[in-house]
């Protein structure tokens, strides 16, 4: 019960974005089955404005826009989640190796330098161009879009992990374990990494929003998932030409859905980060709320 109450005390923006994110994940699972019409089969009912029957109207191929928007949850959100998952795991591993000094090991220093320069290389190319090139090179399949999006996200996760690892590495409990004789890989895995991941994981939520935008963006340019797979970016692109002639709903309504989802992931990520910072504060203020033990409980041995 108290968990519910804590949750309800959050700012409204967090509540709304949390709700939308929860709905998004739910729709990624059941979205296509909720679609009132087949989102891939063209019909003669082209360019119908929004009406009770076609709430978002229909597009130039006569496909119900709402059905596309709903079915696309599974495509865009799943691509984003999977690719962020991949880059999160790979980024944490690379960041850990690049950040941890292994008690002054030469080899680790070299590995760190090499990883960092490779990350520089990846980051020096604009994200969108890089993703475009990757998908263009290997082919427009869902798998390649996932790999491309994961690849461009990886440097940020690696750098976040690295900087956290570098600060945790100098905490005394690491030296304490070292003096105890625990192996360096063991210290990294059981002490340094668990204490370094909060910020990286909070960022993952923001990154999911970005990844959805990137996936949709690739399709918008025709370089992402191929039609007729229902997809927000492709649908927005297909309606772009009709806005000037007054058929605004094809682009605008799926675009609004996309914006709401991306914004919610970003807001939730911010809230998560703020919550982690709050949780981190008592540790920095020693003795702020120390549990006091009655005198009898703590005593000198006889």
């Amino acid at each position: 019960m108290s968990a519910v109450r804590t949750w309800l005390r959050q700012p409204p923006a967090t509540l709304v974005s949390g709700g939308i994110v929860a709905a998004t994940v739910l729709l990624a699972i059941v979205g296509p089955t909720l679609a009132p019409f087949n989102p891939e089969r063209p019909t003669p009912l082209v360019l119908l404005p929004p009406s009770p029957r076609h709430v978002f109207g229909t597009d130039a191929s006569g496909i119900d826009v709402l059905s596309v928007a709903l079915a696309a949850f599974r495509v865009d959100v799943v691509i984003a989640l999977v690719s962020v998952g991949i880059s999160l795991i790979a980024g944490i591993m690379l960041g850990a190796v690049a950040g941890y000094g292994f008690n002054g090991s030469r080899l680790a220093a070299w590995a760190s330098t090499i990883i960092l320069r490779l990350l520089d290389l990846v980051q020096s190319i604009p994200v969108f161009i890089l993703a475009l090139a990757l998908v263009g090179m290997f082919g427009q399949t869902v798998r390649n879009v996932v790999i491309g999006v994961a690849f461009v996200n990886l440097p940020v996760f690696a750098r976040l992990t690295r900087s956290a690892v570098r600060s945790v590495e100098h905490r005394e409990f690491v030296a304490a374990s070292r003096a105890l004789g625990v192996r360096e890989t063991g210290i990294l895995g059981s002490h340094v990494l668990p204490n370094s991941l909060d910020g990286t994981i909070a960022y993952a939520s923001i990154a999911v929003g970005g990844a959805i935008l990137l996936t949709a963006g690739l399709s918008f340019l025709g370089a992402g998932v191929r039609p007729p797979t229902p997809e927000w970016g492709a649908e927005i692109a297909s309606g772009a030409g009709y806005i000037v002639t007054g058929q605004w709903w094809i682009s605008v309504l799926p675009g609004l859905v996309l914006s709401a989802v991306v914004l919610s992931f970003a807001l939730l990520g911010d809230a998560a980060r703020a919550a982690l910072e709050r949780a981190g504060r008592p540790a920095a203020m020693p003795g702020a709320q120390v549990l006091t033990v009655p005198a009898g409980e703590e005593r000198m041995p006889a």
């Binding site: 905490r171 005394e172 409990f173 030296a175 304490a176 374990s177 003096a179 105890l180 004789g181 002490h191 668990p194 204490n195 540790a283 020693p286």
Partner: peptide, 24 residues
């Protein structure tokens, strides 16, 4: 032999707030 030395010589640090892993 290093592990044996580690067992024989132990160290306690200045700041008890940072010398214990908060997750342990």
């Amino acid at each position: 032999s290093l592990l044996k030395f580690r067992r024989r010589v132990q160290i306690v640090f200045q700041d008890p707030y940072s010398s214990l892993d908060p997750r342990y």
